[in-house]
Structure formats: C-alpha cells, structure tokens
Simulated assay, not measured.
Amino acid sequence: MRRTDQKRAGGRTLAGDAYEAIRQAIRSGRFKPGDRLRFADLQALCGMSVTPVREALARLTAEGFTVLDDHRGYSVASLSLAELRDITAARQLCESEALRLSVEKGDADWEGRVIAAHHLMSRIPQVREDIPSAMREDWEARHAAFHAALISACGSPILLEICEKLFSRADHYRRMSISLSGGMRDVAGEHRRVMELALARDAEGAAAVLRDHYGRTAAALDSFFQSENGDPA
C-alpha cells in the first residue's frame, strides 16, 4: 500500500488531507489567483511529504483550481468572480439570443444535429472514474459540441464566434463548478430540458432555461468563495 493511500482516522488519506488543506488555502485567499505554489510551502502547510502534496495538486489541477506550467510549475488558477459574473452575463445574453434565433430558423437538419449531439454527450459520464470531482475531457468535447449544435442555426457567424469565445473563457470556471456542485445539480436534466424546449419550438422557454443553466454554474463558485469572505475579484 502506498503511503499516500494509508488511511487516517475516519477513513481519510494523506493525499486527501493535503487536497483539503490546499483547497481551503485557495478558498480563504491565503493563496491568491496567479500565485506560484512551491512544494516547500505546501509541505509546511500540510505537514507532510512531497508525494501526497503532488497527488493533491494533480487533483486540484483536474478540477480547475490550479494550473501546471512546464516552466513555472503549479500556480493558483487566475480566478476572478468579477470576470466570472461578466462572462456569465455575456453568455446569458449572447447564447440565449443565438438559441432563440436557432429555434425560429432551424430546419430538420438543425434538429438532427441537436439530437445527435445530445445523444453522444449523454452516452458517457460527465466525471472521471479516478477523480469523481473532475470532468472527463471526452465529455467536455461532446458538451461543447452540444451547445454549439443548439445555436448553430442562428444565422450569424459573428454571434457564433462570440459564443465560442465565451464558452472557452468559461472553461476553468466550469471545471471548478463541477467539483463544487457534485450531486446537487442535475446537469443532464438541465441539458435535456433545453433540448426538449428547443425542439418543441419554444424559443423563449429554451432561452430562459439556458440562462438559468449558466447562472447555476456561476452560483456554485460564487457561494464557495463568498462564504469565506475571500472574494478574489
């Protein structure tokens, strides 16, 4: 049995304890967005060797809380709640309008793209088996394809380009949200509801559910940081 897998009281592991300690330090603002994370500092914080700290950082990186640079090592992800709120508002505005237009203009081919993209996304789990709080990369690719299909018939290449850029800008916030919301959200149900309303040609209803879908993602992160009075905005 590896040292980091050894159980502590209550069934906890060394790597799990290191994960909780580092994540709490990020949450409270002890480590600021963009701060470089040095192993010596983290070992002192956690009171343990480098191996469980390294495993904790791998998990935090998969969840979007930290990033790994080949030259600088690990650092805290550049998070700003002000940016998150701005991205969310922009996505709610632009993508809901693109969806509304797609519902109005979309033909049978558009319906087929939406159904096919949703089917592919729903065929695989959202989270990784080894790290249940982290998103699978293949699911994220299919997730992106589903959202792209929903708005693909809007008729505006410029609007589609804006929506694509906003989707990318929201990436690490989305990853963090998944790790925080866990089973509290029925993400599959939210996606299915958007699709059903879109295919039923309920443009306003589909747009409203999509706006709520993005709002829930932002709310998970907002609550996480605000509860510690550690708003990094």
Rank of each mutant, 00 (worst) to 15 (best):
S80I: 12
R59V: 14
P125R: 12
L79P: 00
D70N: 14
S223H: 07
S122E: 12
D41C: 00
I178L: 15
K32N: 13
C163R: 07
L159M: 10
A200I: 00
E104F: 03
L150N: 02
S49P: 01
S156Y: 01
A77S: 15
G215I: 11
R174Y: 14
G182Q: 13
I26P: 02
G155F: 09
D202G: 06
S152W: 08
L221Y: 06
R193H: 13
P132S: 01
A40F: 01
P33S: 13
A203Q: 05
S156G: 03
S122M: 11
D202W: 00
A18R: 00
A170T: 00
I26F: 08
S75R: 09
S122A: 15
D231C: 08
R193L: 12
S156H: 08
P232W: 10
L159K: 03
L159H: 08
F167A: 11
G183T: 11
L68M: 11
Q24E: 15
V67T: 14
R123S: 15
G189L: 09
A117M: 06
L99A: 07
L81C: 07
A207N: 10
I22E: 14
M195I: 03
L84K: 03
D86M: 10
H147D: 10
W139P: 08
G47H: 08
F167W: 01
L120H: 05
E111V: 04
M176Y: 10
C46P: 03
D86G: 03
S122Y: 02
Y19D: 11
R174G: 07
L57V: 08
L60S: 03
A220H: 08
V103G: 02
R72I: 10
A233M: 06
Q24K: 14
G73N: 11
Q24R: 14
L120F: 05
